[in-house]
Design a protein around this nucleic acid. Structure first.
Lengths: 325, 325
DNA sequence: TTGTAAGCGTTATCAG
DNA sequence: CTGATAACGCTTACAA
C-alpha cells in the first residue's frame, strides 16, 4: 500500500496525503476523505522512502553490550522516556564481546542513516574506538570514560571510597578486595582504586590488605574467595567489585565458617544492589545506581550534540547511593 | 557520500559499484579501483535506498517486553546466532507495559519494512493481539501461547509438575504455593496448575494446600509469605512462582524462624534458576530454562514462516531442567 | 488550498 | 563484462 494508492482512493493527490501525514495545508473535507482511506486500507507509510528523501531518520542508534545486562533495561527506559517527548526514536542493537560483531552492528546502524549513537558499554571497547570516532554522527558513551568522546558514567571511584568508609573497618582490620577483571575500567580499576583510597584514609596499612582478581560470575567469586580463605588468613571484611561476585564470596564464607554470623566470618560488601542478594543475604553494604537517570542524561546529551552540531565532547558523572550499611 | 560519487572517483558507473557491493560481474581491475575508492571515502551505502528499491529489508523486528528481562539477553543472543548464518538482521525494540507504547513500536517497525516480528512477551498482550494479527508480516510470539499465532514457549506446566514431585512432600505435608499475578499465563496459571497437579499425584489433599497470589518483586514475595506465616500455620514447603518471589519468601522465613535450617522452617522452591539466589540460599529447587535455545527456535520458526509465506501458525514447546534438588 | 514533478540512493533490466 | 536508465515511495518547491 502506497501514498499514491491512498490518494487515488481518496480522490486527491499524493501530495495531499503527505500533507495529511505531516500536517500541512489541507481542507477539512479532504482531511476526512484521506483519513477514511487510510483507515480502510491500513496504509503504513514507508519510513525508508521518507528517510531517503529527508536524509535524516530522527532515530538514534543504541548499542547495548552484554556486560551491562543489569543496567540495560533501566538505561533504555530512560533514553526512550526523554526522546519520547521530542520526536526522536531509538533503534536498539545488542552486541556480545566480539569485535567483528560490534563493527557489523555499527555499520548496519550507520547504513540506516541514524542521527547519532549511544553506546552503552562498560566493557573495553574493541577496535580502539576508531570505529566510533570515524562515525559521521555524534556518539555518547555510557558506562565509562573514553578520551575525546562524550560520556555519561557513574562515579565508581567515589562510590567505592564511601563504601570503604562505611564498613566499620579500623586501622588494625584485615581487609580483602575482590577485583573484577582489570580490563573493565568502571567495574575494575575505578572501584578498586576508590576502595583502596577509602581504606587508606581509615589508616589501614597496605600490608593488611589483600587484593584478588576474579571474573564476573558467581562461580568466579566463589573460587577466588574459597582460595583466599583456604590459608590461615582471617579477614574482617571482604569487599567485592560486584554483587554477583559477592554472592560467590558469601557461598565460600558459609562453607568455610558454617554461617555468615560466625565470629570469625568476614563481613561482605558488594556493588550494584541486586534485590535478590539484598533480601537473602542482607543487610549487605552495596552501591545503588539510578540507571534510568543515566539513560535520561545520555539522551539529553545526545540531543545537545545533535543541536549544536559541534564535536566538542562533553562528559557527565552521575552520583550513587550506598545502601545496606 | 553516495554510490555515484564513489563511481566517479573510481572511473566506473554506479551500476558497477552496486555490483561490487552485491557480487555481480566485474573485472578484477575495476574491482580494485572501486575497493580503493570506497576505502578512501569511507562510503557507507544507504540501507534506506536499498530497502526502498528491494521492498524487503531482510530484517526481523524483535519486540522485548520488560517482564521478560531475565530472558531477554539469552533470547536475543539465540536469535542473532541463528540469523547470523543467513542474511537476516534484527531490529530490536523495548516496550514497557503501556498499550500505546506497544502500538507505537509496532508501527515504527512496520514502517521500516521489516519482514517479520518476534514478540518476546510473557506479559498479557494488550490491544487484544489484533495489532499483531493485522500486521502484514509473520509474527512469532515467544513466552506464551496465543491462539492462531505461531508461538515458542517453555513447558511451564510440566516443569512445575516435576518440581512438585521432587520436593519430597508426603501426603501429610502442608504446602503453600505463591502464585505470580494471574494475568501472566506462563508465570502464573501454567506454573500454578502444574504444581497443583504434581501435588495431587503425590496424594496431598487440597485442604493441606494454601495458594497465595503475589506480585513479581522481592518485596511482594516477602509480604505475602510474611502474612502467610503470621498465623499458627506451619508449612513443610513453600513453592514460589519465580526466584525473585522465592528470595522474598526466604527473607520472611528467616525472620520468622531465625534461620532456614530451623526445624520448622519450610523448604523453599523457586523458578528461573537465578545464580545469585542459588549461591546464597542454595541448594534451592528451581527450574532452569535455556533461553538461547528458545531464541534459536524462534528464529528458525520465523525463517520457516518467511520461506513458506503461509499463515498457518506453528507452535513449539521447549523443555526445562529441574535443578537444586 | 491544491496538484505536478523532481529527486533522494539503490538495484535490476536491457542493450551494448 | 559494462553502462544508461527506470523505478522504488516519499516530500517539497513551484506553479496554479
Amino acid at each position: 500500500m502506497t501514498n499514491k494508492e491512498v490518494a487515488e482512493l481518496a480522490g486527491v493527490s499524493s501530495a495531499a496525503v503527505s500533507r495529511f501525514l505531516n500536517g500541512g495545508y489541507l481542507s477539512d473535507e479532504k482531511r476526512e476523505r484521506i483519513a477514511a482511506a487510510i483507515e480502510q486500507t491500513g496504509y503504513v507509510p514507508s519510513a525508508n522512502a521518507r528517510i531517503l528523501r529527508l536524509k535524516k531518520s530522527n532515530t538514534v542508534g543504541v548499542i547495548l553490550t552484554r556486560a551491562d545486562e543489569n543496567a540495560m533495561s533501566g538505561v533504555v527506559a530512560g533514553i526512550e522516556k526523554y526522546f519520547f517527548a521530542g520526536e526522536l526514536g531509538t533503534s536498539l542493537a545488542y552486541v556480545g564481546d566480539d569485535v567483528k560483531e560490534q563493527a557489523k552492528t555499527m555499520r548496519s546502524l550507520l547504513e540506516r542513516q541514524i542521527d547519532g549513537i549511544i553506546l552503552v558499554s562498560s566493557a573495553p571497547i574493541p577496535g580502539d574506538i576508531e570505529l566510533y570516532e570515524r562515525a559521521r554522527v555524534p556518539v555518547v558513551v555510557v558506562g565509562q570514560h573514553v578520551r575525546d568522546m562524550s560520556c555519561v558514567r557513574f562515579d565508581n571511584f567515589g562510590a567505592a571510597y564511601d563504601l570503604a568508609s562505611s564498613l566499620g573497618c579500623k586501622p588494625e582490620s584485615r581487609v580483602a578486595y575482590i577485583d573484577a577483571s582489570g580490563l573493565y575500567r568502571s567495574f575494575g580499576a575505578d572501584r578498586r582504586k576508590g576502595f583502596l583510597a577509602g581504606l587508606e584514609r581509615l589508616g589501614i596499612d597496605e600490608s593488611r590488605i589483600s587484593v584478588r582478581t576474579s571474573g564476573f560470575s558467581v562461580e568466579h567469586g566463589y573460587r577466588t574467595v574459597h582460595d583466599l580463605l583456604a590459608g590461615r588468613a582471617v579477614f574482617d571484611c571482604i569487599s567485592c567489585a560486584t554483587d554477583t561476585i559477592a554472592a560467590g564470596a558469601i557461598k565460600a564464607i558459609r562453607e568455610r565458617y558454617g554461617s555468615l554470623s560466625h565470629a570469625r566470618a568476614p563481613k561482605v560488601s558488594g556493588f550494584g544492589n541486586d534485590p535478590i542478594l539484598q533480601a537473602v543475604a542482607g543487610p549487605l553494604p552495596t552501591v545503588s545506581f539510578d540507571y534510568e537517570e543515566c539513560g535520561i542524561k545520555a539522551a539529553e546529551l545526545m540531543v545537545d550534540l545533535l543541536k549544536e552540531g559541534t564535536n566538542s565532547p562533553k562528559s557527565l558523572v552521575l552520583g550513587y547511593q550506598v545502601v545496606g550499611v
